[in-house]
Amino acid sequence: TGIVNVSSSLNVRSSASTSSKVIGSLSGNTKVTIVGEEGAFYKIEYKGSHGYVAKEYI
């Protein structure tokens, strides 16, 4: 489990790349469930599926 550490919002992406499609966003202080790691990204549970967020903001 981690907490989103941004002042505005954090993009949730379809894969572990900054060039991948943005599938949603999370507000600061949102609790997320981390299910894996891939490079500079965490794989998280997101809306019944999975998404990826940059580690530096969790």
Rank of each mutant, 00 (worst) to 15 (best):
residue 56 E to F: 09
residue 31 K to H: 10
residue 55 K to S: 05
residue 19 S to M: 14
residue 6 V to N: 09
residue 37 E to S: 09
residue 19 S to W: 08
residue 56 E to G: 07
residue 27 S to F: 12
residue 27 S to A: 14
residue 26 L to M: 06
residue 25 S to D: 06
residue 43 K to Q: 08
residue 46 Y to A: 01
residue 44 I to V: 06
residue 29 N to R: 11
residue 52 Y to Q: 00
residue 42 Y to G: 00
residue 12 V to Y: 01
residue 21 K to S: 10
residue 35 V to W: 07
residue 5 N to Y: 05
residue 35 V to R: 05
residue 14 S to M: 15
residue 53 V to I: 08
residue 36 G to H: 05
residue 23 I to W: 03
residue 57 Y to Q: 08
residue 10 L to H: 03
residue 42 Y to N: 01
residue 23 I to V: 07
residue 16 A to N: 04
residue 52 Y to S: 00
residue 8 S to P: 11
residue 57 Y to L: 08
residue 15 S to L: 09
residue 54 A to C: 12
residue 53 V to W: 01
residue 47 K to W: 07
residue 34 I to D: 00
residue 53 V to A: 04
residue 28 G to L: 13
residue 58 I to M: 04
residue 33 T to L: 09
residue 48 G to C: 08
residue 48 G to I: 04
residue 47 K to A: 11
residue 9 S to W: 13
residue 10 L to A: 13
residue 43 K to C: 09
residue 43 K to L: 10
residue 47 K to Y: 10
residue 42 Y to A: 02
residue 5 N to P: 05
residue 21 K to T: 13
residue 58 I to T: 03
residue 56 E to D: 08
residue 55 K to T: 04
residue 33 T to V: 14
residue 9 S to A: 12
residue 2 G to P: 05
residue 11 N to D: 15
residue 47 K to M: 15
residue 39 G to Y: 05
residue 14 S to C: 10
residue 51 G to R: 02
residue 29 N to W: 15
residue 47 K to E: 13
residue 2 G to D: 04
residue 14 S to D: 13
residue 26 L to A: 02
residue 39 G to H: 06
residue 16 A to T: 07
residue 27 S to P: 15
residue 35 V to G: 02
residue 35 V to E: 04
residue 20 S to I: 02
residue 20 S to C: 05
residue 22 V to W: 06
residue 17 S to Y: 07
residue 8 S to N: 11
residue 9 S to P: 11
residue 50 H to T: 11
residue 48 G to N: 09
residue 35 V to C: 08
residue 4 V to P: 04
residue 31 K to V: 15
residue 24 G to I: 03
residue 22 V to L: 08
residue 24 G to F: 08
residue 33 T to C: 11
residue 30 T to L: 07
residue 34 I to Y: 02
residue 37 E to V: 11
residue 11 N to S: 13
residue 58 I to H: 02
residue 52 Y to M: 01
residue 48 G to T: 07
residue 3 I to F: 12
residue 12 V to S: 00
residue 49 S to Q: 14
residue 2 G to T: 06
residue 47 K to Q: 13
residue 32 V to H: 02
residue 44 I to Q: 00
residue 51 G to N: 01
residue 37 E to I: 10
residue 52 Y to G: 00
residue 57 Y to S: 10
residue 51 G to A: 10
residue 39 G to E: 07
residue 3 I to A: 05
residue 12 V to N: 00
residue 33 T to Q: 10
residue 6 V to S: 12
residue 21 K to Q: 13
residue 12 V to K: 00
residue 26 L to I: 11
residue 39 G to K: 06
residue 43 K to M: 10
residue 54 A to Y: 13
residue 56 E to I: 14
residue 7 S to P: 11
residue 36 G to N: 06
residue 1 T to K: 09
residue 27 S to M: 14
residue 45 E to F: 09
residue 42 Y to F: 10
residue 52 Y to A: 00
residue 55 K to R: 08
residue 11 N to V: 15
residue 30 T to W: 07
residue 25 S to W: 14
residue 19 S to R: 11
residue 15 S to G: 13
residue 9 S to L: 11
residue 56 E to H: 12
residue 52 Y to C: 02
residue 8 S to F: 13
residue 23 I to D: 01
residue 23 I to K: 04
residue 44 I to A: 00
residue 24 G to E: 02
residue 28 G to N: 15
residue 39 G to D: 07
residue 35 V to S: 04
residue 30 T to D: 11
residue 30 T to A: 12
residue 10 L to E: 03
residue 54 A to H: 09
residue 38 E to D: 10
residue 43 K to S: 03
residue 10 L to G: 04
residue 18 T to R: 11
residue 40 A to M: 12
residue 26 L to C: 04
residue 19 S to N: 14
